[in-house]
Structure formats: structure tokens, C-alpha cells
Design a protein around this nucleic acid. Structure first.
Lengths: 347, 347
DNA sequence: TCCTCAATTGTAAGCGCTTACAATCAAAGT
DNA sequence: ACTTTGATTGTAAGCGCTTACAATTGAGGA
């Protein structure tokens, strides 16, 4: 005999009483409860999770599905760890376990998610790297399991998401550059199919429009998260009749290639070409002159996601707030020396 | 009625037959099996995980416990993600789910682990960031659940671990430097309590001894994973009667601070001070001259860990190989220009 | 003294799935 | 024609826990 039954026999009470004592049910004599808890402690007892889930119909755990993809932002340990830290803290405070579920890039992410969801392995789900069109969202909606996405998508109806405030960042960056006198502002966008690329590009267009600046498709450069892409970029920017004087980078690492090529051409970042990075990354912290970029609290992002999820979970949702929550987490500008007024005689 | 019972009724067979069909039990008529599979597919059925685990006494999932610590090695660029990639692939190929379990730094990691283990939430466990003395190992051993650690420890008896080949790296680095003519070789070691610090330091001593070089405690510098620590280091190295001419870095980022300070002193890396980094990190890839360092395949590390675990799991263990597996994953030298013969007139 | 009621505990029916064992049936053997 | 045998399916007993409901007990009230 094992598990709760063993405890029950040991103490001469029924399994029901043990269960109640262990679960904080008020209908247990105080003395009995203590006896049970003591014995549980002594025997190193912990309720079997499968049995518990089966009986309760609830797992007390939420999944965080991530995709293993070198190219993606969320796949850097730093980003991931930071976000998870925030999530974990909030969830743990509500008695929920966070299970990070890594999906291989080669694997179909829809099927992957479906498995966990339809098997009832989690009570809630957080999805990362949302695509512009993402079937996972409809899947989650039809499953009825609470979920939140880290990133917006065009799929599905109203659902909860947390995203970076790309619009705010872009507006701030463009405002700053325009204020410095720039008129030809280029931008890099991610070359993958994550939705943030589209959003970033759109925000760029909108910001230009707000200043009455013309949108030139040739100033939009799809780049990968590799520093090398910075080199050719510089040539593309400058070797044209109407060169750009500033650039906003989605991936900050691109700055490394840019700096290098600028140096080769005898040019100086911040003077001959103004550069603003999106999210400050560690690899770039050491560049001189320091890249002007935006910072954010990664744990806060995780916290926000976890909270949005909790708001939908029957167990924890405060009755009043259970609903769709959509929020853009702001980033704050950290001025460096990589931007400034455009050199008059460009080139 | 739901679950398997629903399917059974729908098809006019017993739940036992459905279960057998779904699980690939050979004692099912081929036609029946197809009928069942078709219906399952059509109705989007997937077995409830809790029920399955309870009945089988097995979860088909393994945990990978990590600790959330921004400061540590692991929180850099792409360590965990790479490792997880390898693990996930191997485990998935054996029908096992990988659950990454993040433990907050503030949380007691022993208790954290104990919860998952004693509740029977996983069939196997992989532990990261092993300490020199690590109670988790005894915990796992007494639990009887198969486990592997990423990193060695002095705790427990014989158990499976996978670790980096610190000894090999150190030997190669020292050999190389000595070959170039260096006699005063310094080293940085991590200032935290993870076991790899001790191992690295020991390997350093051993390698020196092999060359008959004296060990000087003053040439061992505990450093954090911050580039800043490189600066003071340079002064400590050079401003002494008997300056060091080379240094081996545990954290490669330290090179950034070193380069900076060397430049301030008008000195050149590779000429005035030879530098060899341990594991090549993204943040340092861009330094010029390029840092001589070691590279490894992160996924291979994960793969090795997963395999070592599988060898202990009754379901998957090939009868012959179920046992303790201890392996040091080698790294390969990637020569840069940060090392070379010591300048004759040092300083 | 008998009854009511609240506090506490026990009984037993599941939760959804697996699996040992029994049952059925048709093909094959004698 | 009758038994044997293998293939296939059904029956039912759990897996360890929760929980509705019934049972017990003692205190307080009529």
C-alpha cells in the first residue's frame, strides 16, 4: 500500500480525512490535521500528481511554448531567462508550476502545441513568437484553455496578448532623428515571418508619415540577426544618389557590421551615419561609440504575460477582471553617441 | 461521456479495444485498429495525460531543471537554448517530452526539485549548474528516478554526468602558450560556487605542473561574468615585478575589459599580452584582434545528456548499456590573433 | 430526557485510462 | 464431427486521489 492510503493506515484514519487535511479543507479537526501533516512530513509524502490531476481535472501548471531557433530574438538565453524569471515568480505565487516546452524548429509547432493541449497537460498556455497568421491561436481558442501570446497576431478574435511597444519605440526613434535634422531615415526589419517584423515596418511608415516624410521602400532592409548583414547595408545606404543619414535597427547586433564598414570607409558612427538600435543587447554593449537604443525589463514582460493569463484562469481570476487583456510593454530610450545631427556635406 | 469511452460507444467496441488500438497493441484486428484511429483523428481525441500516467505509472516526460540567474554563465547568449535543442531532439525521438523547469534564484533548489520528483511528475531528470556539494544528487539517488547532471559534483556516489572537458581545454591552452614561450601564465576563474570553477582551477595547476612551471596563487583571478573585471585585471597582471605574459579566461567577455585597458596603456593584445578564452561567446566574436578560444557544439552537449539519461530509463534503455555514464565533451581550439610569443622586453 | 445541529469522519463512487484474465469464435487438426 | 488453437474482443479491477453524501458523536436546547 502506498500514497495516501499508507498514511491513512498509519494514522488510523480514512484516506478522505488525510486528503482533506493535506488540502487545507476546513472540515478537519485541528489536532487531526496536525497529526496528518506531521506524518506526511515524516514519511516524505507528496501527492501523486497524475492522480491528483485526474481527480481534480486540473494540473496546476501552465506551459510556455518556445521555439528553438537561433535566429529569433526570444531564443537568446538572455531574453528567455529574463522573461521566464518574471513568469515563474508570478505563477509560483499562485501555486502554479511553469513548464517551458521547447519545440524544435523542424517540428510543426501546431501539432506540438496540440499534443500538450488536447492531452490536458496544462491548465494554461503562453505562446512565444507569434506569427502574423498563426493557427495556434484558433487552436487555443477552440480548446477553451486560457492562453496568452507574447506578441500580436492577426489570427483569431479577441484574445490576450502582451507585446513590446514597437510603435512607441519607433515613434521615439524617428522623432529623435527628425529632431536632429534627419530626413532620410532607413530601417532594418527582421527577415523571418514573425509578426513583429510587420509591426515594426508599419510603425516606421506611420512615424515617417507623422512627420510628413516620404516612405521609400528602398530604405527598408530585411536583415537576419547576424552582425555581418551590417556591412553591405552601409553600402546600400550611402552609395546612392540620395543617401540615408540615419538608420534604425531591429537587431542591434547589425550595428557591429555597420561600425566595421563605416570604419573601413573612414566614416564615424553618429556623425556620418546616425544609428539607433531597438532593444539593447549584450553583444553590442561594448561598441564605441555606444549605440543609442532602448531598454526594457525582461522580467516585467514575463510578469505581464503571467498576469494576463491568471486573469483568465478560473482558479485564480479575481471575478472582476477575467477578460481579454492586451498590453504593449514600453521601452525606454538610452541615449548613446551613435546618433546626432547629420553631417552637412554628406559622404 | 467523454474520452475513450465516447470513442468506444461511437464505434460499438469496448474501451479496452480502443485503448489497445491507440497504443499499438498487436492484439487488435487490423480493420478495427483503423476504424479506431480514424475515429480518434476525426473527433480530435487525445488520451488524457493524467489518466494515462496514473494507469501506467509513467509520465513519458523528463524534466530539465535550470536556475534563473542573470549573472551566471548560462544566462549569456545561447547556452541553454543550444543545449535544450539537442536534448529535445533525442528525447522526442524516444517519445519523451522535455519539460524545462525554471527555479528562481531566490527559491531553494532542493525543495524545488523535490516537489517535482516526489510527486512523480517526471520519469527522469536532468540537472544543470551542479555545485561542488549538491544535495540534489543524493535526493535524486534516493528517489530512484533516473537522472543526469550537466556538470560534475563531489556529492553522491557514482552517477551519470556530462560535463565540458575543462581539463582538455586547459591542457591545450597551456601547451599552446608554453609552446609560444610563455612562462608566466595567469588564469581567471569564476567567482561563484559552481563546481566548474574548482575544476578549471585544478586543471590549470595540473597543466602548469606538467610543464614544470611554478604555481603562483597571485596569478589566479576570480572574476564575474562582466567585461569590466578585465580592466583591473590587466593592471594586476602587468604592474608587478614578475609580470604575466599570458592569461587564460574562464569568461571570454573579460577580454573586452582587457582589450580596453591594454589600449589605454598603448599595448596590443597578442603581442604584449596573450589571451586565450575558454568558450567562444557571441559578445566577443567581434573583438579585434579576434580572441583565440574554444568552440563546442551546444546541441551535442544536450544530446549527450539526453542519451546518458535514456540509458537509465527502463523503457528505452537498451539492456546492455543501462548504467552510469560519465563523459567530458571536448571543445576544439579556434585560433585567433590574441596570442603569440611573448614580447621580449615586456611592458 | 429527547431532539437538533454542527463538527468531524467515514464510505464509496468516480476521474479516464490500462491491462490481466476470461470469453468468444472461426480456422485448423485428427 | 469434435477438439485444439490462435486471433480478437470484452469484463472488470485497479492506478492514487478527491469529494458528495451518509454516518457518528457530543453539545446545547426544549
Amino acid at each position: 500500500m502506498r500514497g495516501i492510503a499508507r498514511l491513512a493506515r498509519e494514522l488510523g484514519v480514512s484516506t478522505a480525512t488525510v486528503s482533506r487535511a493535506l488540502n487545507g479543507n476546513p472540515n478537519v479537526n485541528k489536532a487531526t490535521r496536525e497529526k496528518v501533516l506531521e506524518a506526511a512530513q515524516r514519511l516524505g509524502y507528496a501527492a501523486n500528481q497524475a492522480a491528483r490531476s485526474l481527480a481534480q481535472g486540473v494540473t496546476h501548471s501552465v506551459g510556455f511554448m518556445i521555439e528553438l531557433d537561433h535566429e529569433s530574438t526570444t531564443s537568446t538565453d538572455y531574453f528567455f531567462m529574463g522573461v521566464v524569471e518574471g513568469m515563474q515568480a508570478v505563477l509560483a505565487a499562485h501555486g502554479l508550476d511553469l513548464l517551458v516546452l521547447p519545440c524544435a524548429k523542424s517540428q510543426d509547432n501546431f501539432t506540438f502545441l496540440q499534443r500538450f493541449v488536447s492531452r490536458g497537460a496544462v491548465d494554461g498556455m503562453i505562446l512565444a513568437e507569434t506569427r502574423r497568421i498563426d493557427r495556434r491561436i484558433e487552436l487555443m481558442q477552440s480548446s477553451g484553455i486560457p492562453f496568452v501570446t507574447l506578441g500580436r497576431s492577426d489570427s483569431g478574435g479577441g484574445y490576450s496578448w502582451i507585446d513590446l511597444d514597437f510603435e512607441g519605440v519607433m515613434a521615439t526613434a524617428v522623432d529623435r532623428l527628425v529632431g536632429q535634422g534627419h530626413r532620410r531615415i532607413a530601417v532594418t526589419v527582421p527577415s523571418n515571418d514573425a509578426n513583429y517584423g510587420t509591426i515594426f515596418a508599419q510603425a516606421y511608415q506611420d512615424s515617417l508619415a507623422r512627420h510628413g516624410l516620404a516612405f521609400d521602400e528602398e530604405l527598408v532592409f530585411p536583415t537576419r540577426r547576424r552582425e555581418d548583414d551590417g556591412g553591405s547595408l552601409v553600402d546600400g545606404l550611402l552609395d546612392r544618389p540620395d543617401p540615408a543619414t540615419a538608420i534604425i535597427l531591429f537587431y542591434e547586433v547589425t550595428a557591429i557590421g555597420i561600425y566595421r564598414r563605416l570604419a573601413e570607409r573612414g566614416l564615424t558612427p553618429g556623425r556620418d551615419l546616425s544609428i539607433i538600435g531597438f532593444r539593447g543587447e549584450e553583444s553590442v554593449r561594448f561598441l564605441a561609440p555606444q549605440v543609442t537604443c532602448f531598454h526594457m525589463s525582461l522580467p516585467d514582460l514575463g510578469t505581464a504575460a503571467a498576469r494576463a493569463l491568471l486573469a483568465q484562469m478560473p482558479l485564480t481570476a479575481p471575478a472582476f477582471s477575467s477578460g481579454v487583456l492586451q498590453r504593449r510593454v514600453p521601452l525606454s530610450l538610452v541615449p548613446g553617441e551613435s546618433d546626432g545631427p547629420p553631417a552637412s556635406g554628406v559622404r
